[in-house]
Design a binder for these strands. Sequence first.
DNA 1: GAGTCAATCCCATGAACATGGGGGTGCCTA
DNA 2: TAGGCACCCCCATGTTCATGGGATTGACTC
Lengths: 209, 209
Amino acid sequence: MISVGIIEDDEQIRTGIQAYLNNQINLSCEYGYHSMEAALADFKDWNIPNVLIIDLGLPGMSGIDGMKILRERFPDCDLVVFSVFNDYKKIFDSLCAGATGYLLKNTPFDEIKEGIESLAKGGSPMSPQIARKVIDFFKPQHKLKKISPLSDKEKEIVVGLVDGLSYKLIADRLSISIETVRFHIKNIYRKLHVHGKAEVISKSLRGEI
Amino acid sequence: MISVGIIEDDEQIRTGIQAYLNNQINLSCEYGYHSMEAALADFKDWNIPNVLIIDLGLPGMSGIDGMKILRERFPDCDLVVFSVFNDYKKIFDSLCAGATGYLLKNTPFDEIKEGIESLAKGGSPMSPQIARKVIDFFKPQHKLKKISPLSDKEKEIVVGLVDGLSYKLIADRLSISIETVRFHIKNIYRKLHVHGKAEVISKSLRGEI
DNA sequence: GAGTCAATCCCATGAACATGGGGGTGCCTA
DNA sequence: TAGGCACCCCCATGTTCATGGGATTGACTC
């Protein structure tokens, strides 16, 4: 028997889901709250469901802020976002806050049920649109590739800088003179509008090159 | 009608899936290959399925390397990994290579079919275990937080370094003397066993602090 | 075949950094 | 209450870096 809770300010939705889940043979949903504050006040180590369905657009504390606290206090409770939002920011903020699933509000009841069961089996329920966006996060981004104004050689030099090498060591690694390294770095600085290797390393590691 | 292709060296699996998919009213699976090389030789702009199911452990060119090429040449063809591997490296390498879905080899035929349909609707089919690992990627990692040997002030200084500031500017930002900045940086270098700000920036941005 | 451009080298100067020493003041904890 | 630790400041030395000027070569374009 999986114990489920729901934090959702729309009473109709909340009670509807509670009623549906309580009707399932393997689920119970005794925990229903209209706000994150109410939920946090009620939960204790010995009084916490296995799974929490959380709306993002709550009055008072937001679902995302709430999840950070919940994740900290009750790491064994799986958090599932239940929201109308499907934009990147909301999705990634939720995942970074500790959500283990993300279902859109148009998800049919039976799929919510399946999602909860999937959680128990080590899965992560996501609406299709959400899954696609999460996957897209890893996709190579060609667009940024071409805007790099650096030549191949200059990029090699940047790698050396990122590795923390001195000009001398970069020269040795690339089998060129230290003067050539100097020359390239001058041009790198010009192209990137920076004035020191620290900024080059930052830009590089942040993917701005 | 969705056109599907499969690249899989195990003939039994390949023909089995082809037969099943061809039996579906809304799918066709005319493209079957035993290796990535064979597939790449056959595909043309006018001769490419909508969806490609790809095994990772192929003889010759690996599925991951192949996907990189496919993604480049045929960006409109959705790639779905079909593999026994469920380790982080394989998963993320696949996604970075351009996979839009990832199904484990124990996936029943009907779920493969549903996955393909989901793709067409903008979804990203993933086996539950895979979805969980992808989601976990975003989860906050507390464990590394405490091992940082740097004091609070030192961390502030590191932020300044990462921002590419000179000692003077860091001093101004923190309202302390440049000599104090020097002092802290000396200690930072000692603690991190490095000998220059470049290495500090690298370590910091790589999450090693 | 003149022009552009990346890449290779050289020199010089001032600024910034790395590293080694000194001093202090507080706060906490044994 | 002494020792440890984080924080604050100062000095001196040598190294590395940033930036400006040059010059040459080969490849590719027009």
